[in-house]
Design a protein around this nucleic acid. Structure first.
Lengths: 194, 194
DNA sequence: ATCGCTTTTTATCAATTGTTAATGGAAAAC
DNA sequence: GTTTTCCATTAACAATTGATAAAAAGCGAT
């Protein structure tokens, strides 16, 4: 697959920018293929990039006080990963991002986007759309976590991330849902009966 | 207090816009004083406004499946409330916003800001800063909820919302922390010993 | 100061969820 | 084809948290 075309499609999903503006940002993009298990953004380490996910699945996670890792988000095909500004504190990443399958990404320095935003109005709109989308996503998750039971959250997870449950280890999903893998197993048994 | 001056200060906290741009938005602002206990944005009801909180304290909450209300955020003096776009789904509010003390707010129709954003570059930057700030806030809360114990979260709550614990009913705080008011009471007793 | 209301704390008990460990199954390696 | 490894499930038990109710404390109003 041509990465450039993939990125154009991703950008257009957020905001319909012109071909010229598209070229302006793609110029700065480096493409990488990473194998499953690779951590490409690391908690506590400086990271100055923003990312397009072209193919594959990855997740973000943090480590709690017991040393367990807690999944914050899953990312599938053709999206922008959580913007640098929302995952960086005092110049260090607050989370780790890890490939759950082999993935293809395009990355560019966040500062280049800031420059382009100053020059190109469409770039401001694009960046704004990304922020807005991420905020809506997080608000939705916040709402679900607060108002639904774990069983309901599992149902929604299944709708949202179709076949993921058969693809990745359950402890990763369980921590995303805020339960243990044992509880997840119990919920799965309950739902299978229904 | 003059509400207009209050709003200027709030806006400048997000992005330093010119006096002219300031006037452009303030023209659309309606000022209201609401007494403690008033719900001014209601879950399931259409709401087309964005809000400045000029004085007092309010909260947003949702109702879970047991009928309990779960606090999502607290807002103090001189901030912008969660943007319309992040709390609205299918043209209806996803949350209720309630005054916890008497409050003064300034509200304006979200669509007026969208118009101004088209015309005035500074307005785009301001709106962008608000979105970014809200996203950072939510990301931080997400991080804390995932990685810290309830006791640690209470400590951070105290730093963040200084005297709130002596001002509002504890069940409201407990639901914000993700525990019951009984558990909150037990944590308070533990922390008092330390 | 006292009364009455609201809120918080405490205690007891129940239920849920987590922990540990063993079992079973599936996929990968040899 | 067998063995090994990894992962999900299950069971027994422990610990935590929640529910209910009663007591204590705080607060306002009279």
């Amino acid at each position: 697959m041509d990465g450039k075309i993939g990125i154009q499609e991703i950008i257009r999903d957020y905001y319909n920018v012109s071909k010229n503006s598209m070229e302006a940002i793609i110029k700065y993009v480096e493409f990488q293929t990473l194998s499953s298990g690779t951590s490409f953004i690391k908690s506590g380490v400086q990271n100055e990039y923003d990312y397009f996910l072209l193919s594959g699945i990855c997740r973000s996670y943090v480590v709690n006080q017991k040393g367990e890792d807690i999944t914050i988000s899953f990312f599938q095909n053709r999206t922008v990963l959580t913007p640098n500004v929302a995952r960086t504190f005092k110049n260090q990443s607050t989370m780790t991002f890890e490939a759950l399958t082999d993935i293809e990404i395009g990355r560019f320095k966040a500062i280049e986007l800031v420059k382009l935003m100053r020059e190109i109005s469409e770039m401001r709109s694009f960046a704004n759309a990304v922020l807005q989308q991420e905020l809506i996503l997080k608000s939705k998750k916040e709402l679900y976590n607060a108002s639904l039971t774990a069983k309901e959250r599992l149902k929604i997870f299944r709708q949202q991330f179709d076949s993921l449950e058969n693809l990745i280890p359950h402890p990763i999903i369980a921590s995303y849902l805020g339960i243990t893998n044992i509880s997840l197993s119990r919920l799965r048994a309950e739902l299978a009966k229904e």
